[in-house]
Simulated scan of single mutants.
Amino acid sequence: MNEEAQPPSPRERLYRRERRSVPAARAFAREALAEWGVHERADDVVLCVSELATNALVHGVPPGRGFLVRLLPCGDGVRVEVHDSGDGVPAVPQTDVREPGEGGRGLLLVSELADKWGVGERAPGKIVWCEVGIT
């Protein structure tokens, strides 16, 4: 991130439960990163946003609800949070996801791209987050 007097302000946006929300979340992330002057690993951050938003949309957002994407500067990197109101705790699949078909790759990608990731509590629901270091 740019070494300026003021740290970048956190950004957040609420999305509806609809497929077009995922590309909108990617565009939102790209815009925020560009405003912050983050170029290194920007594609990794955007892909993490995409995968976490997709998981929220498919698994974590009940009908009539939405999800929140929050981007925050964190140390020498960026923290991505996706808040949803669904039950359950996401986990990296333990089965072989190399088989054809959909599903199972999102958190695997996040776990490979991000420096760390996890799940936090929220009432109702959860916050799935990851942090990507920018040097």
Rank of each mutant, 00 (worst) to 15 (best):
N55F: 06
L109E: 09
V132M: 01
N55R: 02
R11F: 12
E4W: 12
G88N: 05
A42D: 07
G133V: 12
E81L: 10
D43W: 02
G118I: 10
G106W: 00
L113K: 04
V80H: 08
R98N: 12
P124M: 10
I127H: 00
V46W: 02
A27S: 09
P100Q: 00
V58M: 10
E40R: 14
L33H: 01
R41C: 02
P7I: 13
N2H: 11
P7L: 14
T54S: 14
I127N: 07
A24C: 04
L71R: 05
G120A: 15
G103M: 03
E12S: 07
G37R: 02
H59P: 10
V61P: 04
I127E: 02
V80Y: 03
G104M: 09
S85E: 11
A123Y: 06
V49A: 04
E40D: 14
M1T: 09
A25I: 12
V80A: 12
D44T: 15
V132T: 09
E18I: 05
G103E: 07
P124Q: 08
L47D: 11
E99G: 13
L57S: 08
L47C: 11
P62E: 14
F28V: 08
L33Q: 08
R30F: 08
V61F: 12
P23T: 01
D44I: 00
L68S: 07
G75L: 07
R17W: 07
V97I: 13
A34D: 15
D115T: 04
G133D: 11
R41M: 03
P8E: 05
A42T: 02
P23D: 03
V110K: 10
R26H: 14
Y15V: 00
V45E: 03
P90L: 08
G106L: 02
V128C: 00
N55E: 05
E3P: 13
D115R: 08
D115Q: 01
R13Y: 10
G103L: 00
V58Q: 15
V128I: 07
R20T: 00
S21E: 03
A123R: 12
V132L: 05
V97Y: 07
R41Y: 12
P73V: 08
R11I: 12
V45Y: 01
E81P: 02
K116G: 06
A123C: 12
V80M: 07
E3C: 09
D84Q: 05
S21C: 00
A53W: 01
P124N: 11
G75M: 10
E121M: 04
H39V: 10
V69I: 10
